[in-house]
Nucleic acid binder design. Structure first.
Length: 274
DNA sequence: GAGCGGCCCTGGGCGC
DNA sequence: TGCGCCCAGGGCCGCT
């Protein structure tokens, strides 16, 4: 399931494969993926060139000559590039054919992914309307603002970190890892965290996501990069998908609970409720 | 306004 | 073997 590191890995892969290519035509087999006007989407893309690839949080950005294509992979969205013949695949929903004969195919088993086409000047307003928080970097992710937002909220810290408003890019896997490293129980209310715990969650968010980008993301179940290769970050997971196993820090058994409808993994000794 | 839960969607795993 | 149920989860939406 792609979180920020996986999306960044896909972005880097596509950058090597499709920059400078001119779109010849589109084939959209599952129109519900397109969230902006479908006719407009189909009419406006042909003729445009892929100028650069970007990313904001978990959103993948295709900067075209005149527009920006915003793609969210949600659970299982993937891109594959074929220089020639395109194989028939069950879950291929959008085909972007280039003038040089290559094709970029969007596949998504669960059909959760979305695509929007916007004018570049509307991009900032688009993310503003989604209340998307800062990128998880030292420059953008301000500790004081983070601290002040947590103080005002009774939401469980895990749910709060997942809602993308405090910081962009965390998903269910990395949020469990961040909270384990920061020794904070996922059910704790945001406003119950001490200044020291808040700082740890902040620092570990930057650390974990940065490390995961370096490792090419995590391959859990089905994720692969644009070349169909696996990431290796899962080898460094300490709690996610490790229920019943010993905590590497204290030896207690990792537990799994449901929190806001999401599977949540934690060490009951290192991450006390208080 | 904040917080929560249902929904979308399909494949895999499991029990019967 | 085949069927039905449950689970996985990001983000949107509606309800309290």
């Amino acid at each position: 399931m792609p979180e920020l590191p996986e999306v960044e890995t896909v972005r880097r892969g596509l950058e090597k494969l499709i920059l400078g290519k001119k779109i010849a035509s589109l084939d959209i087999r599952y129109p519900k993926i397109i969230k902006t006007d479908l006719d407009q989407f189909q009419k406006e893309l042909p003729g445009q060139v892929i100028v650069s690839m970007g990313r904001r949080g978990k959103y993948l950005l295709f900067y075209l000559t005149e527009k920006v294509l915003i793609s969210h992979l949600r659970m299982e969205g993937k891109y594959f590039y074929y220089p020639g013949q395109v194989p028939e695949r069950k879950h291929a929903h959008v085909f972007i054919h280039f003038e040089d004969g290559g094709t970029l195919v969007y596949e998504d088993v669960r059909k959760f992914g979305t695509m929007d086409l916007l004018a570049p000047e509307l991009l900032e307003a688009y993310f503003l309307s989604k209340k998307l928080g800062p990128e998880p970097t030292e420059q953008d992710f301000d500790l004081e603002i983070f601290m002040s937002a947590l103080k005002k909220s009774k939401k469980p810290i895990k749910s709060h970190l997942l809602d993308q408003t405090l910081v962009a890019g965390l998903g269910n896997i990395y949020v469990d890892e961040v909270l384990w490293r920061a020794k904070v129980h996922p059910s704790r209310t945001s406003n119950s965290l001490t200044a020291q715990e808040t700082r740890k969650v902040h620092d570990q968010t930057i650390e974990v996501l940065g490390q995961a980008v370096e490792k090419g993301g995590s391959t859990i179940r089905t994720y692969t990069n644009a070349f169909g290769e696996d990431g290796t970050m899962q080898e460094f997971h300490q709690v996610y998908d490790k229920a019943g196993q010993a905590c590497s820090r204290c030896g207690s058994i990792i537990e799994k609970i449901q929190l806001s409808g999401r599977g949540t993994h934690f060490c009951p000794k290192c991450q006390r409720r208080k």
